[in-house]
Design a protein around this nucleic acid. Sequence first.
DNA 1: CTGTTAGCGCATTCAT
DNA 2: ATGAATGCGCTAACAG
Lengths: 369, 369
Amino acid sequence: MAHKVTILDIARLAKVSTTTVSRVLHNKPDVDPATRERILRIVEEQGFVPSITAAGLAAGRNPLISVLVPALTWPLIPELLLSVASVVESTSYEMVLYSISSSNHERDCGKIIDRILATRLTAGLLAVFPGQSSQHLTRLRRQGFPVVLIDDQSPPPEGIPWIGADNRRGAYEATRHLIELGHRRIAHIQGPLKYCVSHERYQGYCDALQEAGLEVDPSLVLEGDFMPAGGQRCALALLSRPASERPTAIFAASDYMAYGVIAAAETLGLRIPQDLALVGFDDNPASAHVRPALTTVRQPVHAMGEQAIKLLLEMIEQEQMPRRRRQTLPATAEESPREAPRIVLPTSLVIRESCGALQRHPSALLPEI
Amino acid sequence: MAHKVTILDIARLAKVSTTTVSRVLHNKPDVDPATRERILRIVEEQGFVPSITAAGLAAGRNPLISVLVPALTWPLIPELLLSVASVVESTSYEMVLYSISSSNHERDCGKIIDRILATRLTAGLLAVFPGQSSQHLTRLRRQGFPVVLIDDQSPPPEGIPWIGADNRRGAYEATRHLIELGHRRIAHIQGPLKYCVSHERYQGYCDALQEAGLEVDPSLVLEGDFMPAGGQRCALALLSRPASERPTAIFAASDYMAYGVIAAAETLGLRIPQDLALVGFDDNPASAHVRPALTTVRQPVHAMGEQAIKLLLEMIEQEQMPRRRRQTLPATAEESPREAPRIVLPTSLVIRESCGALQRHPSALLPEI
DNA sequence: CTGTTAGCGCATTCAT
DNA sequence: ATGAATGCGCTAACAG
């Protein structure tokens, strides 16, 4: 290993104390400009970079952020992570990735969360779609650990800042779009009902129907699994009904399920959009490529990631104060339990071929990369 | 913040010294079984987890691993990361993610790499498709920092363990498959020639043609960009030639470009696979969903990630020895510069609809998730 | 404006 | 089989 240059080396070379070096490194005001200049130069020359580890130990916190994600291969996770990463990398923080891999889903992310908290490696946690395990998160949060949640969870856990998409409105717009295209028998393939988003999207679907004076036909609403297989299964059931009862349009609660619908339609010899209009939800990158290109509701992943991580960073910066020095803390202003922010970001309807609103146009196949 | 329990607390509760606690935590042999038992119990009760930071500082290394990836939204990256993450999470290491986000690509990952090395936060680096910047990596490696590379780079940088896919053979098999289906005018859309893999895949293409006694027609080989747009552009050029010169099959060097070919074919009213056979390369998750489902060469991403991270972990464990203690190092056995491992993993041809080898069968649309 | 003094929490000699 | 002592590299009071 090459020689490691420490702050002490710099101090010696600059003929000052390590304290002073530390000061300029942290942009403290009280330093002679000339000295500062000199130190900076030497730091540069020597290629000195402070040891995060040591700094963290001494200061009682680390410039590291935990990011907890599910499968990683889920549709929008990489996009989300990308926007998070780009924000993180513009700061001096690093990002530690924890994924709830399929295998150890049972031993729950509870374990991971314990690890995150106990180890004190990171200064905060951004949890993406943590599923059922948000109970652990509230525990974390209650201990004063900065946590921000993205989406998910039925009643968003109290006290945890939360960022999500406006699922209900997105679903409403998708359904309304189908209604405007003249459809009257519109089916809905729901996500698993254990997820809150499934209910929200269903609500949006109902909103649109009711607004149009159509009534919700329960037999046109099936519960899927967010995966293509489930979409296909439901579509098969829906589409094999007698023509007079068969839906002319389907709103699937996820793009994946919409893929399943496409497969089912093909099996039955139904053309999309001519015989069946289809709208999905998510706007997976792949959805612009499937044939027919899928009309869908785009989730504001980029904004979600960005806002969430910025919020978390803010929380962490605030948390700085109550170091473990037992000082005459100004009797702490009663730790006003400010409402945790709830940010709901708007979705947007992306119109492609599958809903029949467009002439089939080859350029629609071009990826939007 | 909840009270943080330290090793000292444990020691007090167990009425032993921190040294002893440390010993049992590290499974050192010389500890009275009864004492060990007692300590372990208390550790459990208190939910004590050692501070990574402090341990790292004291021991001179951290149980952290840097993983450097490009875009994250690139086709196979999430899958790769997934297998890496699952291995990492089965150890006591954590994984720090660095991504070469689009924006700061110019300031190069050189900067990130500096950060990785200088900061000494992590004990090793797994670099995935690092592109041009592998020069920085060799520097890292030369300083004795454990580095493992996945794929990429023309002459794989010396001295760096390297894991890759057998691009040439994969391309060979894809092309041979087309030949076996009776095609004679087979075009190839290459990746950007600045990438080594593009050449390798081209070589495989040539191998198959030559083996079949066909000659390589340079006018049937176009350079693309790995993206759908480039694939479409090339396909348009290829397919608008007079029928007698038009290729009957296209082998695209990436699935993305194959998507572009599909779009182009549709524009020109050509049916796949009836009028044009198509094979891609990568096996993106989406490729099973596009219509027609894409025949392609699957990269062994899972194995690549797993092997790479395991290799890295081994290197790190070895590196342990030469701590910075100035002991009477046994005159070091001349640091035998063992050849850095080069592991080439086999690809596999995934036959779907686009090559025409299959009857079009709806179930082929089912995702393989 | 600058240096001195203590640790942060743990691992590791070196004694016993 | 166990403990005392030392220091990893840095930050943050507290004096000058």
